[in-house]
């Protein structure tokens, strides 16, 4: 087997896995804090893809063409608006269900997912959308290669990996080191006790949704730039994959989400690349099942200790 092909599959898997990881963060944080699978998260990601394209087009229409300005401006706006979507969804559909059974928010989330998909379909049309290539070019190793004997990573792909790592580090820092993060962890550990100690848990939960949505926005922004194509349905598959990654890494754990994403991405890439892409997803789900049987709390999850 060609070393270049193997190397290229590493790159492919790493890039794919980083995007899974970014979206998985939303699942893992929400699950950690209120024990709920937020099925609408994939659609939040979809919204952010649309927002990215809309703001890109808006910037172009205003005559802004400097790449760094456009990139940062669009990222900031997308982040802001996606976070607003995340916040509103929590406020409208999940907060009224805070004190009910644990499955009620799950159904509500499925409803929200339907609403978001069809809201975007009706207002933006069902057709496939895209963005023009903004940042072209790639690093190649070795630099002057003939034929196909090289490994390459495009600028955008490297941006995806770096941004994923950076935002994960930032988020971990927030959770571990700041007062806000301490309040988050307190709420996660014991909501009633945290409330008694003066933490506004409703606000903290809102904030978790906002942070999850922001990470989905980063993913939506980068993925949209990289693949340049999306429609109102992209959230579904991405959501399931990211959720799988979150569980694989140990749900509730931030670094676990990233690790789970990368492992899933690599597994998919290698299986598709060297075995068969038809059964790629079968393989991904099979390793998930097998892994959970032998290590039921994922890579980095803390095993649940049940006290009686």
């Amino acid at each position: 087997m060609d070393i270049y092909i193997i190397g290229q599959q590493w790159v492919n898997g790493l890039v794919l896995g980083s995007t899974y990881g970014l979206i998985a963060v939303g699942y893992t944080m929400v699950y950690g804090i209120i024990g709920m699978i937020n099925f609408a998260h994939g659609d939040i990601y979809m919204i952010s893809a649309y927002l990215t394209a809309i703001f890109l087009a808006l910037f172009a229409a205003m005559g802004l063409h400097s790449v760094p300005v456009v990139l940062l401006g669009v990222l900031a706006l997308t982040l802001l608006f996606t976070a607003l979507y995340g916040w509103s969804v929590e406020r409208v559909a999940y907060r009224p269900l805070r004190r009910s059974t644990r499955l009620a928010p799950l159904i509500s989330a499925i409803g929200i997912s339907l609403i978001l998909q069809n809201y975007v379909r009706i207002s933006q049309g069902a057709r496939n959308q895209g963005v023009p290539p903004l940042l072209e070019g790639s690093f190649r190793f070795p630099a002057e290669a003939l034929d196909h004997r090289f490994i390459q990573i495009t600028y955008l792909q490297s941006l995806i990996v770096i941004t994923a790592l950076l935002s994960m580090a930032l988020l971990t820092w927030i959770i571990q080191r700041t007062a806000l993060g301490r309040a988050c962890r307190a709420t996660q550990q014991d909501r009633v006790m945290a409330t008694l100690l003066g933490v506004n848990t409703d606000r903290i939960i809102s904030l978790v949704f906002v942070m999850g949505a922001a990470m989905a926005a980063v993913a939506g922004f980068l993925v949209t730039l990289n693949y340049g194509s999306f429609d109102f349905y992209v959230g579904f598959l991405m959501g399931i994959k990211a959720f799988t990654a979150a569980v694989l890494g140990g749900i509730g754990s931030l670094p676990g989400a990233m690790l789970g994403g990368v492992v899933l991405g690599l597994a998919e890439s290698f299986f598709a690349g060297f075995v068969n892409s038809d059964y790629k997803d079968v393989f991904a789900f099979s390793i998930l099942i097998l892994f959970l049987i032998f290590r039921p709390s994922g890579f980095l999850g803390v095993p649940e200790v049940e006290k009686v």
Binding site: N12, V223, V234, S269, F274, S277
Partner: peptide
């Protein structure tokens, strides 16, 4: 075969 709805076919392209 590839999966409908996905956007990343890099692994397949490398293949």
């Amino acid at each position: 075969g590839l999966t409908r709805g996905e956007k990343d076919f890099n692994a397949l392209v490398t293949k």
